[in-house]
Design a binder for these strands. Sequence first.
DNA 1: TATTGTTATACTCTATAACTATA
DNA 2: TATAGTTATAGAGTATAACAATA
Lengths: 159, 159
Amino acid sequence: MKAPESPISVIPEPVPAVDEVDTSYLETLMGYNATRASLKVIELFTKRMAVYELRHVDFSILSLITHNPGITSRQLCGVLGILPPNLVGKISIMEKRELVSRRPHPQDGRAVGLYLTETGAKLMADAERTATALEDDVTQKLSATEKKTLMRLLQKIYL
Amino acid sequence: MKAPESPISVIPEPVPAVDEVDTSYLETLMGYNATRASLKVIELFTKRMAVYELRHVDFSILSLITHNPGITSRQLCGVLGILPPNLVGKISIMEKRELVSRRPHPQDGRAVGLYLTETGAKLMADAERTATALEDDVTQKLSATEKKTLMRLLQKIYL
DNA sequence: TATTGTTATACTCTATAACTATA
DNA sequence: TATAGTTATAGAGTATAACAATA
């Protein structure tokens, strides 16, 4: 039953203000959760890597060269999902900083193998220590088991 | 014991080619795993949302307006980690497409409340159905329990 | 004095087309 | 003909400074 109309006109809050934002729907989406987590980690990563003048993608590139000496640009692009034209400039800068060197590929005359210089190897030894230390900070709220589970489940999404 | 030097100079593969890329170190890092998973989901999300002419951030904005009518730009920026100058253009485009309308905030004369138009509400009803359907595809390799666990652990990282 | 929304602007990231040299 | 690497370029995303209107 409807209440009788009041003779005095009361505006019943026609445009209510939002006090607390409801994010419950977005939080049901894998893309939202994975992206928010990713951005949170990258944010801290960027800060800690600033001392080495490395962005998170630069770190991934140098880390792959570290563990795969002689890797080609194509292989880097394939693994990291970077387009070739966007890798060229990054490698050039790293070469100018004398972190990497380029040598002809042993079999394929079109390709170029990438290698760390001594300077690059020293930088990456420090940078990988920093990255590994960062792990403990970003997974602070997770137990060792939970961390392992999270890694495994994330890989089930992208592999 | 060292083999005696051969009188014939044999080059012992000085620059070996990389056949399969070793990504095992990167896979121990939370940032790498979360980012790869995030990009994988966003890639598919972008394709499926193209029909609505929505990027994944546009979808998040409209979804928050859907579930929080009257939300302000500041609140959107706070929740999604967008900077105010970068939101202005997006909202303008959505207004031109007649998906959202802007009305003065009931209490704060500086602020503007954001609302879906009828067109916007219809579009988002379809878009959210598409997003929910996408969930099943990206979590194909996960059981219902695993999916729930993954969501919970990701939130432990970013919340 | 602080905050909301905005403009202008610069820098980075991402994407496409087209070229060269080699396979 | 196809592939590796490169150049040029356009578009999208992200960053800071500065301003008007309002709190």
